[in-house]
Amino acid sequence: MTTAPAPVTVSASAPVAGLVPATGGGLPVGRIGADAGRDAVIAHLREGARLIRRSDIQMVHAAGLGHIGGEFSITDVLATLYLHVMKVSPDQVADPERDRLILSKGHAAGALYTTLAAAGFIPPDQLATFMQPMSMLNGHPDRKKIAAVEANTGPLGHGLPIAVGTAIAAKLDGSPRRTFVLLGDGELQEGSNWEAMMTASQYGLANLTAVVDRNRLQQGARVVDTNDLEPLADKLRAFGWEVVEVDGHDHGALLDVFAAVPAASGKPTFVIAHTFKGYPISFMRDNVAWHHKVPSAEQVALALAELETS
């Protein structure tokens, strides 16, 4: 890690009701290096994720659009990767040797944007433009508009094949750079993922880590009631991957998982991150209605209050 521990900026006066224009309030929190010590890193990630969620819910409320439930389920994974694990730098966003993260579940763009703002890749003020006409912050990420975005996603099943390509490129270059790709669990119903899984295994892409956001809910219903994935871990292993299961909201556990890749076996790693849609908000958590429901001002206030103690 190149970045020294950055001071955590905690927004002092949180907007708690009515209009909530200060979507970037409290950001950025900056990246933290390993030399800070494990406890400090975990504390930093926990606070970073809290502030990212605060910004995200206000941003979605202001835009009147967004996918807050599936954004809150991946916030801890994104924070762990961008604020600590990945070798990336806002000062060298196009560095060929940077690690890559591809957000395959592109509808969770709000979580990516707020995380990028927290990590210093985009100015927090820009979050107020989310989904506005001509905004750089599309409803789904666009690499032509935001330099830190690696791939244009939105239609599901695109990210894993692209990640296989970036991982093969790194291997051809003899580079240690890593690729991470974050997928929804419902997204695994797209057949292109399984094509790409076979390719990753065939090419021995130990430098590739896929994380599935296992929140068990898709847009319209529970995954189990739609097109069930189980036994998921067995399927992934059968496709030639190392499989690790983890609490996707436990920053310490996530750090351990990401520290273990590339796997000694030479296989790519699939992380099944067990999460809750809408986590940790009581009225959103594990509720399918919050796929793309937009919170009211009152709900934002309630959520912000809950986040104070999360």
């Binding site: 890559r100 695109h158 390509g165």
Partner: peptide, 12 residues
């Protein structure tokens, strides 16, 4: 997969 892998190689 083929076209996606191509896009990823371009990214790399």
């Amino acid at each position: 997969d083929m076209v996606g892998v191509g896009a990823g190689l371009a990214n790399g």
